[in-house]
Design a protein around this nucleic acid. Structure first.
Lengths: 148, 148
DNA sequence: AATAATAAGTATAATTATATCCTTTTATCT
DNA sequence: AGATAAAAGGATATAATTATACTTATTATT
């Protein structure tokens, strides 16, 4: 469905939200540890999320990543588009470059509704909504204690 | 959504069906040419599809791949499972190993219905149904003359 | 026996995922 | 104020996976 980068990014963003509403910031180390993703790769993802203003970061001691409590709603679609690109919501089920109403692939009619639902789901869900429901620690690691 | 291997395989199977109902057989060369996939890679895919009895093949002059006119319905899900594996229909949207009703990821409730629809779509659609609708030549290449 | 085609195994390339290393920023401590 | 250390940022390197190509062997048909 989505790339690993994208899956990791969503998990990271949710975790960061949940754990920085008190004004704290959180390090790459802790994020990666908590969501069960590789440290350095996670760092790179957070970097692009920060550059895209999806999350905030500050350098230096006591620095880290965070999402401001008053930040506007962040839709999951924004994360997906930042990482996997927006085309992912338009892709043909059979991989055709030019699959459309005019030139539909054999699955087009059946698939387009589903694809639309996926898009809607990601546009509807916000980091804030989903993040609130998260447990505190190691939430995504082997699902041990998740969700709360 | 699906891997390229899987997309190619579905395209190939549909094309083979469409073009072998008259008792003909068709070579890898022609399949790959018609559906716009790399020759050798396509050969390998057809190999596994044949081994899985999804399609038939005969060697030698006038040999090639085919689907018998009286072959039982082949559901697209069978192709997907042969190439990408059956787990693809159970995968978590956020990539968690153990996402389930008991340990749902934050998107589980929203996603499970969609995933189910994808599965149903692939289980409902058969090669025979979809194949019949196909055009004759180069059907998937740049969508030039597809569908009929 | 010759041929034409598949079958199979291995090799290369591209992409994606991951790790390393160095730089820059900045808070804190002296 | 200056030194230090903690953190992200950025560039580049390696590994794994996926996609693709090549080469040889095998088999069915004529």
């Amino acid at each position: 469905m989505f790339s690993k980068s994208c899956e990791y990014s969503i998990r990271a963003v949710l975790y960061i939200y949940k754990n920085t509403q008190d004004g704290n910031k959180i390090s790459i180390e802790k994020v990666a540890g908590a969501i069960g993703t590789p440290r350095h790769f996670t760092g790179k993802l957070l970097q692009v999320l920060a550059k895209q203003k999806i999350i905030s970061s500050v350098k230096g001691p006591n620095g880290g990543f965070y999402i401001a409590p008053n930040a506007p709603e962040i839709r999951l679609s924004r994360v997906v588009e930042a990482i996997d690109g927006p085309e992912i919501f338009k892709a043909c089920a059979l991989g055709l470059k030019e699959c459309s109403e005019d030139h539909p692939c054999p699955l087009h009619q059946q698939y387009k509704g589903i694809r639309e639902q996926i898009k809607n789901m990601m546009e509807d869900q916000t980091v804030q909504q989903l993040g609130k429901k998260l447990g505190e620690e190691k939430v995504f690691v082997k699902n041990e204690n998740y969700p709360e």
